[in-house]
Nucleic acid binder design. Structure first.
Lengths: 356, 356
DNA sequence: TTGTAGGCGTTATCAG
DNA sequence: CTGATAACGCCTACAA
């Protein structure tokens, strides 16, 4: 036999409908689109619902309508505060909309990513935002199966699943190194932590620039699989100094590394930028207020999240998204830490890059 | 009339069951708890499901079972990286479990909080984690109605909704000020941004300590409603210097303010700690590697998230949670920036506080 | 360990 | 603009 008794206290559409003297479907319509119900009934339903303390059941709604208003968001890390800016953009865009966000953390693992994608799929999400372009074939298949708008964020790649927004990490790093070269630096070190795909691409940009300049030397590259941190910046810089004592500039694949390098220089009484120039990546808030102020590559993370979310909503709601691959560019924020030797500090930030 | 035709390509439990030659309920059992199905059928079901590309429908599951495996998490900010540590703990704890997290952002608004709580309620969450103790009466009522385990995190208060984990912000700040007083500081400034309830409580701790010492002076307090940032630290410190030029120490309600104060001191050629001692709050990673290293109050944010999540799971799964209010304490990490005037730096961090 | 019967609360569809 | 009817896909309860 099936279930026995209906709980007495439970409030469903039916109860509200009974009290309001209308049919359940009218109450349903009222909650989804009040304008489709006549004003008189509107009031009756509203007060009945309030009296009974009615709360819609999302599971029933999803089952009956065969869709949800859940947006799945997949990021590789909660620690890396680069993602908090992107997330802020995403949450801000969905703010006040009917969509809710399901956030999951791949920990930089494509297998985790696959697993989480499969989990999302069970929810029949209305849209998905995933990080990067390095999904496995299986992962891509799962996303396709979800049959909903998808945006890949953080970087650009050749074969979008659906939509894409980001910038070229290769170009961004290339621009930063070019800036250092223009400042007269020759022995430019590369410091990288975690070495996720995007940091790898920054390294690629570094190598391209250095090779073109005829200055490439593998001893100038110091990396670690450990996550980025200020302390790690100091360590990597110390390693670099052992391997290449004649280094005259350091590019850091993350800003916290750059801050750590600055502190390490202070500890060692190395003058910045006179003896060593420093450039970071992402332009976190503290870079501009450091002493000396730290040059960095600004990436438009908040806007990336905001627009990714907007693209999803436009697509869901039938507004055609024509620009399906968006290059947000970057800006090299030139500050004191990378000023030409013996040159005066600039009056204000100077920028170079794309899209500014 | 109701719906017409059943889509042909759709794969449900029924289809898997037919292919495997068992009844649907057996397939259902297999997916929820494989051990309750005999090994032979287990294999048949598994391969049938794979062949058909079956994906369980969470909405149907939730509707039929009258419960979900969603944990609602409410935090006030995505920008404040204090919360990324807490979140990391929460996500780590639920990692690999069947629960999924629904994260929402109140933006420090109790009305937003109410709205989001109401939204959670529609999902019939299995548990909820909310920030702080300042919910409105209405907010508390909604949470009660959810009828699931609830943990309030970040601080302790008199009247828990259900469970609670955090520490006393009043005591933590009191301890930090006591440390400065012990170092011989007398004109201790207070710098605070955002001024959310927890920062207010830190201010209370400051006032308590200063009044007891007979050193309270309202001119030493500089606050702003603007969110915390390194740049803001510099501005607030500049304000403080105008209002109280004789200040000999600064307590910053957040670490990024403290970093900003350090930079501002460097800019003004003020010696730290000789002329001005600096103490921060939260002990973010960069505090220990700054030059000079910056004293801060360590708060156990990761553990807070981890344990909050564990408490929820224990409660859901019927493991009795006896310690329903957990004081995680704090530690004053004494570093160079608050060393006694003319004293030598400590060989290593020294700590004072509770629970260490 | 497996199966039977029925309902979970809502919405799509079609008719008025 | 409103209503009747039939699903949506799975799970609880009970029985074997």
């Amino acid at each position: 036999m099936g279930r026995k008794h209906i709980k007495p206290g439970k409030v469903r559409l039916t109860e509200v409908a009974a009290l309001a003297g209308v049919s359940p479907i009218t109450v349903s319509r009222f909650f989804r689109n009040p304008d489709t119900v006549s004003p008189g009934r509107r009031l009756r339903i509203e007060s009945a619902a309030k009296d009974l303390g009615y709360v819609p059941n999302l599971a029933a709604r999803a089952l009956a309508s065969q869709r949800t208003e859940v947006i799945g968001v997949l990021i590789p890390s909660l620690t890396n505060n680069v993602f908090s800016d992107v997330l802020r953009g995403i949450y801000d865009a969905f703010e006040g909309s009917r969509y809710s966000i399901q956030l999951a953390n791949t920990r930089y693992s494509v297998l985790q990513e696959e697993r989480l994608l499969r989990l999302f799929l069970m929810q029949k999400p209305a849209g998905m935002i995933v990080t990067g372009v390095d999904q496995t074939a299986e992962g891509r298949a799962i996303v396709q199966a979800a049959d909903c708008p998808v945006v890949q964020i953080m970087e650009l790649g050749p074969d979008p699943i659906d939509m894409m927004i980001g910038f070229s990490h290769v170009d961004a790093c290339f621009a930063a190194i070019s800036h250092l070269l223009a400042q007269g630096c020759r022995r430019i070190g590369f410091l990288g932590a975690r070495m996720d795909p995007r940091v790898q691409r920054r390294l690629q940009g570094y190598q391209n620039a250095m090779k073109i300049a005829g200055l490439f030397d593998p001893r100038l590259i110091v990396t670690t699989a450990v996550p980025t941190s200020t302390t790690m910046g100091g360590s990597l810089f110390s390693d670099l100094m052992l391997r290449a004592p004649d280094v005259d500039a350091v590019f850091c694949a993350n800003d916290d590394l750059a801050l750590g390098v600055l502190f390490e220089c202070q500890r060692r009484h190395i003058a910045v930028p006179e003896q060593i120039a420093i450039v970071g990546f992402n332009d976190m808030e503290f870079m501009a207020s450091a002493v000396p102020s730290l040059t960095s590559v600004r990436t438009n993370r908040y806007e990336m999240g905001l627009r990714a979310a907007t693209m999803i909503m436009d697509e869901i709601e039938g507004r055609p998204v024509t620009e399906r691959v968006v290059d947000l560019g970057f800006q090299v924020m030139e500050r004191q830490s990378s000023q030409q030797r013996h040159a005066v500090a600039p009056a204000a930030d100077r920028v170079s890059g794309t899209k500014w």
